[in-house]
Simulated assay, not measured.
Amino acid sequence: MGNLLVILLIKLNPSLHTPIYFFLVNLSSSEICLTSSVVPQLLAHLLVEEKTISIAACAAGLYVNAIVGLMHCCLLAAMAYDRYVAICHPLHYTAIMSGQACALLVVASWAAGISVEVPLTMWVFSLPFCGPNRIHHFFCDFPQLLNLACAETSQIKAVGSMVTVLFILCPFLFILLSYVRIISTILKLPSAEGRRKAFSTCSSHLTVVTVFYGTAIITYLAPNTGSTKESDLLISLLNTIISPVLNPIIYTLRNKEVKGALRKTVQKSSFSHHWRN
């Protein structure tokens, strides 16, 4: 509901029809897909004693989760590039971040997720599973499924590690370099008010990046030594469910433009309702 509210708010307010909010609409849409693929099954399992999932549902959930996760990494990198252009090259912002360029970045993000994760997921489900088919998790994920396979999985684990490094670490490094340039440019601004406004335009995105990449790196890149199954579940819960809940709050409560648009929308709705009455 929070992500849907953000999408409707942006669509209804022409003042928010800018590249960064175009990216935000796609980010919120993908988070709706992510939570819809995980949360209903999780809630069902809380209500029944026999917690089972069909192979088709497991595969579908893994498809969506993997595609959206990879797409998020690329989209957050595109949003970092938007902030870099806005602050470091403001005079060329309109020309660089044109509607066509933004659409291409979004399409490339979705295409990267689909083209990489669909073959990888098909590879996983082509493996033989000899049982017991018990997953100590609240959704189907690559590490848990590979542990159940009774075949050699070293090749697919190596490919999975390459994908993780390429589509989690590389976008993260790009975001890091972008913010190094952004911070360097902001610190050179002559006025304190100008520096404060420039930092405020990046704070929401930087907070979302920290939450998303922090949990993703711990989940998929951190060594397993010393971690328990319960702690792994808690981190996955944070990355899959809590993060999509927090993001709409971060982008509304920490953003004056969104709060202003929300206020105008509520006032317009109240006025329209009063006039009809």
Rank of each mutant, 00 (worst) to 15 (best):
residue 169 L to G: 04
residue 178 S to N: 11
residue 198 A to N: 06
residue 182 I to H: 00
residue 197 K to Y: 09
residue 169 L to C: 12
residue 187 L to F: 15
residue 205 H to W: 09
residue 166 L to N: 06
residue 185 T to M: 14
residue 197 K to A: 11
residue 199 F to P: 00
residue 176 L to K: 12
residue 186 I to Y: 02
residue 164 T to Y: 04
residue 163 V to Y: 04
residue 199 F to R: 02
residue 178 S to Y: 01
residue 189 L to N: 01
residue 171 P to T: 07
residue 191 S to K: 03
residue 192 A to T: 15
residue 193 E to K: 13
residue 190 P to D: 09
residue 182 I to M: 09
residue 180 V to E: 12
residue 190 P to V: 04
residue 173 L to T: 07
residue 198 A to I: 04
residue 203 S to M: 11
residue 192 A to D: 14
residue 192 A to S: 15
residue 187 L to Q: 15
residue 184 S to L: 13
residue 204 S to N: 03
residue 199 F to E: 01
residue 164 T to P: 01
residue 164 T to S: 13
residue 176 L to Y: 12
residue 171 P to K: 09
residue 203 S to D: 06
residue 170 C to A: 08
residue 188 K to V: 14
residue 201 T to V: 05
residue 180 V to L: 13
residue 175 I to E: 00
residue 163 V to H: 04
residue 185 T to W: 10
residue 199 F to K: 03
residue 194 G to H: 05
residue 196 R to A: 12
residue 194 G to K: 05
residue 205 H to T: 08
residue 194 G to C: 06
residue 163 V to C: 11
residue 168 I to P: 00
residue 177 L to K: 09
residue 165 V to D: 06
residue 165 V to R: 08
residue 171 P to N: 11
residue 191 S to H: 03
residue 174 F to Q: 08
residue 195 R to D: 01
residue 183 I to Q: 14
residue 166 L to A: 12
residue 197 K to N: 12
residue 185 T to Q: 15
residue 200 S to Y: 08
residue 172 F to K: 01
residue 177 L to H: 09
residue 183 I to L: 14
residue 202 C to G: 06
residue 178 S to D: 05
residue 171 P to D: 07
residue 188 K to H: 15
residue 191 S to D: 03
residue 205 H to G: 05
residue 203 S to V: 11
residue 177 L to Q: 08
residue 186 I to H: 01
residue 196 R to V: 06
residue 180 V to S: 10
residue 168 I to A: 06
residue 190 P to Y: 05
residue 164 T to N: 14
residue 194 G to Q: 11
residue 172 F to D: 00
residue 171 P to I: 07
residue 173 L to V: 12
residue 173 L to F: 08
residue 189 L to V: 00
residue 205 H to L: 15
residue 200 S to C: 10
residue 196 R to T: 10
residue 193 E to F: 14
residue 197 K to V: 08
residue 167 F to C: 03
residue 179 Y to M: 05
residue 171 P to A: 09
residue 178 S to V: 02
residue 164 T to D: 07
residue 181 R to V: 09
residue 187 L to G: 13
residue 199 F to Q: 02
residue 196 R to S: 10
residue 175 I to A: 00
residue 171 P to L: 10
residue 204 S to T: 03
residue 180 V to D: 08
residue 179 Y to D: 02
residue 186 I to C: 04
residue 174 F to E: 07
residue 201 T to E: 04
